[in-house]
Structure formats: structure tokens, C-alpha cells
């Protein structure tokens, strides 16, 4: 009982710290592509501490405060279900559909809070985010179906174990197509160009976050950090082989080596997303919806059909 609680606390703190480091890596890599120097890697931690220490907050009612807590809670719950090397709290119960569902709820929570604030820019941003959410469901669904057909199971832990013997998922052609479609969906979930329509600083003044300040914004930054960690971890587990290492004899060294291998894979996924974000302009909302329902759907559907053969 105590051991489970300690493991859960460790996962939470590790996820938050590494998530903030990921946000710092995104900022400094983007700055170097812009030929600037960039902030130090630990800058998002200082920003969040500053935001959480602001004194007064305006509040627009109960839903405004509740929506953010809803988002943070859903993300923390999602992290508990994904296998993290050989540490796991609820990993036996984490199947693909549950984790995908839990990773999409934060956007709904932020929409509740944004729409109840009354600012028209926040309302427009919330509508765009909901339409983006609708657009990414179709390729996402086909990718999950492709995975389930290939491995014959929906459980994440068994997929990770199966990859230890069969090789990484992306070495099989149908799953390579599913991985490409899922990578494009990840761009929208991270909120980076070309699909950052919901944030869109140049047009609608940061969309849903235009009314947040102080403690609300600090909690949103924590949610963003944990969400970055959870999404990259999920991709690394189901497509890149996870972090199971059995080379050493003592289990502590195995755990640490597993976490290190997972970290390298997560940073690779993050860097591809950052590069794509720095070189493409952003789509408008109807262009993005048409794009998602055309090419990624075709690729993922082809992958699903080929995987069931």
C-alpha cells in the first residue's frame, strides 16, 4: 500500500520535472533555428514559480476555476496508466482506448474554463480547439485499430512486451503507416505549427488562454508539462519499443537504464515535432480539417487494412 503510493508520487514528480525540461528543450531548439541564443533549459520552471506566486486573481465563476483542475487531474491520471519502464502503478489496466480518451479530456477542460470567461476571443479559440479535436479523431481511430489488429490485444503493457521479441513496431510496414499518421496527430495535440490554430498568437491573442493569469496560468503550464511527457511516452511505448532492459543483474540498474532508454526515445519524438513546428506556417481551421480527413486518414486506413491481413 505504502509502496504503491510512493511509486505514484515518484511517477508524478518525475513526469513534472522531465516535462518542464522538455518545454525548455523546445524553446532552446526553436531559438537556435531562429539564430538566437535562447533561454536556459530550466526557464519554464522559473516562469511557473513566478506565475503561481501572483497575488490576486479575477475569477469568472465556478466553471472557470473547475475546468483547469479537471484538465490537470485528467493528465495526472493518464500518466499513471502508461507503463514507464518497469515501474507501473496501474499499467495492467491501461489499454489503448482508455489512454487516448484520457489524453483528450484536458482540451475539454480548458474549453469549459475559456468559454465561461466571456471574452469573444476565448470563445473563438475554444470553437477552433473543439473542431481540431473532432478532426484528429478519424486518423487516430484507424491507427489504434491497426495496432490492435496487428498485435491482437488492446493492452499497452502486452504490446510493449510483444515488441521485445518481434522488434519495434515501426519495422513492420502497416504499423509504419500508422506511426506516420499518429505523428501528424501529435502535432495537433502538442499545439505546434502547422496545427496550432487554437493558440494562434497572431490572430486571436492566444485563444483560450487570453483570460488566464496568475495561478490559473501556472496550473496550465504544469498541465502542459505533464501532457508533453505523457504523449511522448505513449508514442515511445507503442511504436518505438518501450524501455524494458534486462541486461544488468540488479533491478535498480535495470530500472534506471530503462528510464534512460525511454528518455532518449521521447526526446527524438519531441525533436521531430519541434523541427516541423519551426518551418511551416499555420493552417486555417477549415484547411486543417480537410487535411486531416484526406491524407492521414488514407494512410492510417491503409495501415489498418494491411495489418488485418
Amino acid at each position: 500500500m505504502i509502496e504503491t503510493a510512493l511509486k505514484a508520487l515518484f511517477i508524478l514528480l518525475y513526469a513534472t520535472f522531465v516535462g518542464f525540461m522538455f518545454m525548455g528543450i523546445i524553446r532552446i531548439v526553436t531559438a537556435r533555428i531562429h539564430r538566437r541564443v535562447g533561454p536556459p533549459i530550466y526557464q519554464p520552471i522559473l516562469d511557473t514559480i513566478k506565475l503561481l506566486s501572483k497575488k490576486s486573481n479575477i475569477t469568472h465563476g465556478l466553471i472557470y476555476d473547475f475546468g483547469i483542475l479537471y484538465a490537470v487531474g485528467a493528465t495526472i491520471l493518464a500518466v499513471m496508466f502508461i507503463p514507464l519502464g518497469s515501474i507501473g502503478v496501474l499499467r495492467a489496466y491501461g489499454d489503448l482506448i482508455l489512454i487516448t480518451f484520457l489524453l483528450e479530456i484536458p482540451m475539454l477542460g480548458i474549453m469549459f474554463a475559456a468559454m465561461s470567461s466571456g471574452n469573444p476571443y476565448a470563445g473563438i479559440g475554444a470553437q477552433r480547439a473543439l473542431l481540431t479535436l473532432l478532426a484528429i479523431q478519424v486518423p487516430l481511430g484507424f491507427a489504434i485499430v491497426a495496432l490492435a489488429e496487428f498485435y491482437g490485444t488492446f493492452s499497452t503493457y502486452e504490446i510493449v512486451m510483444a515488441q521485445q521479441t518481434m522488434g519495434w513496431s515501426i519495422f513492420h510496414f502497416p504499423l509504419l503507416l500508422a506511426a506516420i499518421a499518429y505523428d501528424l496527430v501529435l502535432q495537433a495535440m502538442f499545439g505546434k505549427e502547422p496545427f496550432d490554430i487554437m493558440i494562434a498568437p497572431g490572430e486571436i491573442s492566444l485563444g483560450p488562454m487570453v483570460e488566464f493569469g496568475g495561478k490559473h496560468m501556472g496550473l496550465l503550464q504544469i498541465q502542459h508539462a505533464i501532457a508533453l511527457f505523457a504523449e511522448t511516452l505513449f508514442f515511445a511505448n507503442i511504436f518505438l519499443g518501450g524501455g524494458v532492459v534486462t541486461a544488468f543483474s540488479s533491478s535498480i540498474l535495470n530500472t534506471i537504464a530503462g528510464l534512460a532508454v525511454l528518455l532518449v526515445k521521447q526526446v527524438a519524438v519531441l525533436l521531430i515535432a519541434t523541427f516541423m513546428g519551426a518551418i511551416f506556417p499555420r493552417f486555417t481551421i477549415d484547411q486543417a480539417a480537410k487535411f486531416y480527413w484526406k491524407w492521414p486518414t488514407i494512410i492510417a486506413a491503409l495501415g489498418a487494412v494491411l495489418a488485418s491481413l
Partner: peptide, 15 residues
């Protein structure tokens, strides 16, 4: 560049 969303070209032009 800043309005289209590709901030890279904007920062280069400013430099």
C-alpha cells in the same frame, strides 16, 4: 512571417 505563423523567417529578417 509573424502573421502567417512561421516565426523563423521573421527573426532572421529582424537580424
Amino acid at each position: 512571417s509573424f502573421k502567417l505563423g512561421v516565426y523563423t523567417a521573421g527573426q532572421w529578417a529582424a537580424a
